[in-house]
Write a protein that binds this DNA or RNA. Structure first.
Lengths: 199, 199
DNA sequence: AGTTGTACTGACAAAAATGTCAATAGGGCC
DNA sequence: GGCCCTATTGACATTTTTGTCAGTACAACT
């Protein structure tokens, strides 16, 4: 069909292996967050990343490889975020709870959790456990008045509520005729209320 | 390979269309709850239902047909459950909240919600909205002291917390070294605390 | 410039999942 | 009994998704 001069030599983007993996995982993450786990197909991830699907296989071996790498990456990002927020020297209990809530309420984090739970990979969140342990340790060392179990209980509730809001907050709020941020506001009130010793 | 007498005439189970659909949807629901949305494949649903996959197509037209029928069925079951629990004449506000919480905390309901949200079908929960509206109406008629928005706010929080517990309660509790029911207990305490006018 | 390692690609192959169709058989009805 | 309707099935066909492989092009090193 083509007549003109010889086809131009094809120019390629050549990344370092790390950059290539990063690029692909970022594309996969976007798909996960925007369209759900079902959308993580070889061809779609490749197209979103701007490469050919054989290239995805080259870097991850298989689609399952992409999935587990993505899980690990997102879990690491989440724990990093939590640790950074909590290690700020002025992080008193209340502020720390906010940070924890914020981290888990983020859309990506919430959907990661749902993904892990629905696919039976919930055990993969061990890293989160370590972070929580670290938080508790810090708290106990700083403020000897708190009981360890109570602290863990509080964090447990905090995380569940945060993920619930991150997952369903906007949709459910809208469904019930309230502004999209309403669920978040209410949840924070609830957390703070409990914190300030409401009972 | 076989030698003996001629093969026995194949006996079939022949159901009414309604029973056949019901049978298939029940199998699909079990798959959804136990293995997640990814497990809803034509062949797997058929095997679990004890029929051939062509039969599934016959009754639902396509796999997408099975999915939407399952969504509708589960939503209907959920709303029915809520309504029944709430229409008991002695359902005061506290008991009603318990019933609401229980309905949404059930594993199937929680996973249904996650499924709908992740696949972008969150809008399908309109039926839930109608139920909530009905609840609010009833409440307002019975107890003129409550403000409509406050009631909706409370229900919103209640549902999100319940679904969060239903989805992540057992896994997260175990992950943090607590008994599997711990998250549920804490959440109920929280709900009750708010109910009894903690703030 | 030549050599080398490997990220990258296109084309092909295999597997998995979905859908089509003619034929079979169960159950109600005459 | 014979007839009709259709739920059910097995075999085939199509589409989607995943994976293989030989060759190409980019960058680093000599």
């Amino acid at each position: 069909m083509s007549i003109g001069p010889a086809a131009a030599p094809k120019t390629r983007v050549r990344r370092t292996p790390e950059a290539a993996r990063e690029n692909i995982l970022a594309a996969a993450e976007a798909l996960l967050v925007e369209q759900g786990p079902q959308a993580i197909k070889l061809a779609d991830v490749a197209k979103a990343a701007g490469v050919v699907h054989a290239n995805v296989i080259h870097h991850f071996g298989s689609i399952a490889g992409v999935e587990t790498a993505l899980m690990e990456r997102m879990i690491r990002q989440l724990t990093d975020k939590v640790l950074v927020a909590l290690n700020q020297p002025d992080a008193v209990l209340g502020v720390g709870a906010q940070a924890l809530f914020d981290a888990f309420e983020a859309k990506g984090a919430a959907r990661l959790a749902a993904w892990l739970e629905l696919t039976g990979e919930g055990a993969r969140m061990t890293l989160v456990r370590e972070v929580v342990d670290e938080i508790v340790q810090t708290r106990l060392a700083r403020d000897s008045g708190v009981d360890r179990d109570a602290a863990v209980d509080f964090i447990l509730l905090n995380i569940i509520l945060a993920v619930g809001v991150g997952l369903f907050g906007p949709t459910l709020s809208a469904l019930l005729g309230r502004p999209p941020e309403r669920a978040r506001e209410l949840a924070l009130e609830l957390i703070e209320g409990r914190l300030t010793g409401a009972r």
